[in-house]
Design a protein around this nucleic acid. Structure first.
Lengths: 208, 208
DNA sequence: CAAAATAGTGAACGTCGTTCAATAATAAAC
DNA sequence: GTTTATTATTGAACGACGTTCACTATTTTG
């Protein structure tokens, strides 16, 4: 693992940036409370702005769409849980085993947030096509990329394809699995993710 | 291949259904002309309704979102091109080789429609989570499913996972590849799709 | 301190997608 | 053939979305 933190809390560059972060946190908290109280779909941007005592324009400046508020909350959750996750991962062998362990943790989190997952996944998919612009990377792709790079280093994964490409590949299949789990009742997400990893690693062809 | 056609033109169940299809075709043609003239983004649903001499409500009844008009046009294109595609495919060995050939044909078509592909792919991704409801299947998943089933039958592909699941898997990776090709300049789609198929078949792990 | 950059405001606007009551055309039933 | 039930279509209006604009307040920079 690299020595710089995977999730820098805040660059801390002046009061302006600090206030900005406070605003974002405040608005995300307000929105989250409304979501929990009335459901994600039922809450409008205008109500969030009103409840946060802020103009609609201001809200839109920070969060261009409602789903971005979800991303803010989830990203913060991930940042706070990251140390615990990391020590969990350290217990597993690098490469395929560690990736499998991470997907287990993922599954647990997803079940706890199931109600919000459908709009969130759809948002992340629409947002997925902008690798070059300064879009806020989700954390997920960074983690996948890092875990895959570890797997390449220890000989688990092929090295003729760059880690970021493999990570993108994995991320799409991951989203596909989430969607399937969300639309079909009675599926164990942990099982589905394990079988997904199996398929991604070993491939669709019969082993020669 | 089955003896019933993969793309039934129209079930022909009464005058009502026939008129419905005429309306849909008419509206899709009108919309397509506007798209070509002014660009997809610039055309609004109200303008399409107006140009098609139909109320906005009627337009929305047939096509709930603008992208659905694209789907109608593309689906019709595919239906008309299907016989030619099928004889092309018959020339390749079933299984992996035939799938590769199909992706080559796909690549050629995608390049001819590149300008519309980004909104279309995003739409198809959002739409992808409804396998059970009576949503109009894209043709793509049917084709992928059939080609994969052939591959399973001839021993190219593993049989411990059902063909429709493998098809969904393949389709998501396919969309990921399209997105990458759309956002990065100077990529050969045919090459990217070939390498994608390679990865999906052989897997991410090093071959034992 | 002055100038430039950034955050915020309220009002208004165009588009989206939906709702409603009402009418016409088609299909099914008697 | 007449009645009955679906289904397609319409215009008008509505709430929500997301943007624009001109203006004020705050922070940063030189």
């Amino acid at each position: 693992m690299s020595n710089k933190p995977a999730f820098p809390s805040h660059p801390d560059a002046g009061r302006r940036e600090r206030k900005r972060q406070q605003q974002c946190d405040h608005l995300a908290d307000t929105a989250w409370a409304l979501f929990e109280a009335e459901g994600f779909e039922a809450v409008t941007m205008e109500r969030i702005a009103e409840a946060g005592d802020v103009s609609k324009v201001t809200l839109y400046r920070h969060f261009p769409v409602k789903e971005a508020l979800l991303r803010h909350v989830f990203h913060r959750e991930l940042r706070e849980a990251w140390p615990a996750i990391q020590s969990e991962l350290a217990a597993a062998r690098p490469g395929r085993a560690r990736l499998a362990r991470f997907l287990q943790l993922q599954a647990a989190w997803c079940e706890s947030r199931r109600g919000y997952l459908l709009p969130y996944v759809r948002f992340r998919m629409s947002d997925m096509r902008r690798p070059e612009e300064g879009r806020e990377r989700s954390g997920m792709d960074r983690i996948f990329g890092e875990l895959i790079a570890q797997g390449q280093a220890c000989g688990d994964f092929r090295q003729d394809i760059a880690a970021p490409l493999l990570a993108m590949h994995l991320q799409f299949v991951h989203l596909a699995t989430l969607l399937r789990w969300l639309s079909e009742e009675g599926l164990s997400l942990a099982d589905e993710l394990a079988s997904m990893l199996n398929l991604v690693c070993d491939g669709m062809a019969v082993r020669s």
